[in-house]
């Protein structure tokens, strides 16, 4: 039988885990956006060196599994640098660097997907680089970037469960902890899965609506 009491009597632990999950999700998305903006835009600059830096960054963090990045930052980086890194900072850094590489790709792709003719037309009007970006290119690019940015952010919330591998007390970690003394993994992991569904399904539906609105155009 499904024993609800395991959940109801441990709701405070679960709530703590949920806060940690949300905290890392929102925080790493914010920092990741800043990283992505820089790493995406420098790839569009005329300076070759900057372009390479951006490319290397993206390919590096995009192609290493997030779990490996997290473990490496938490366990290996301190040995390299001879400093201590808290699991919180290690988790935050790993998540931000990882999603930053995806955001960078989305930003770069979004700007580059705008037809070259748009640049030609705005240059012919005598617009400066900044005017061009602000008035013509970015408004069109952002429209196209919203769906992939939102989609990647939803994936990010799910990715935070990897934090439990470096013992950050996120939702999944709390679940494992509760099940370790209640011996009720079925109830607990079902509840954890349900919490993700309850948060992410409505977000996905909203996202789809927004997407349709934008594709519709006017």
């Amino acid at each position: 039988m499904f024993d609800y009491t395991v959940i109801t009597s441990n709701w405070q632990l679960i709530l703590q885990g949920l806060w940690v999950t949300l905290y890392y999700t929102v925080g790493s998305i914010a920092v990741g956006l800043a990283i992505g903006l820089v790493m995406g835009l420098i790839q569009l600059s005329p300076f070759k060196i900057l372009t390479y830096i951006g490319r290397i960054y993206v390919e590096f963090f995009r192609n290493i599994p997030l779990l490996v990045t997290l473990l490496w930052i938490y366990y290996a980086l301190p040995i390299f640098l001879g400093v201590n890194i808290t699991k919180g900072w290690a988790g935050f850094a790993g998540l931000s660097l990882y999603i930053g590489s995806f955001y960078a790709e989305i930003l770069r792709g979004g700007v580059q997907s705008v037809d070259r003719g748009q640049t030609d037309a705005s240059v012919a009007l005598g617009m400066s680089y900044v005017q061009r970006m602000r008035r013509i290119i970015l408004p069109q690019a952002i429209r196209r970037m919203i769906p992939p940015l939102a989609g990647q952010s939803i994936i990010q919330m799910k990715n935070t469960t990897l934090l439990s591998a470096i013992t950050v007390p996120d939702l999944l970690y709390q679940g494992s902890y509760i099940s370790s003394f209640t011996y009720k993994p079925m109830e607990i992991y079902t509840a954890i899965g349900a919490i993700f569904l309850i948060i992410l399904v409505p977000l996905t539906l909203i996202l789809r609506k927004v997407e349709r609105g934008h594709v519709g155009g006017h």
């Binding site: 037809d115 003719g117 748009q118 030609d120 037309a121 012919a124 013509i136 069109q140």
Partner: peptide, 13 residues
């Protein structure tokens, strides 16, 4: 100078 392009290149937004 004013320029008119083959593909119009109007600003779609």
């Amino acid at each position: 100078t004013g320029m008119v392009f083959q593909q119009f290149n109007l600003f779609p937004h």
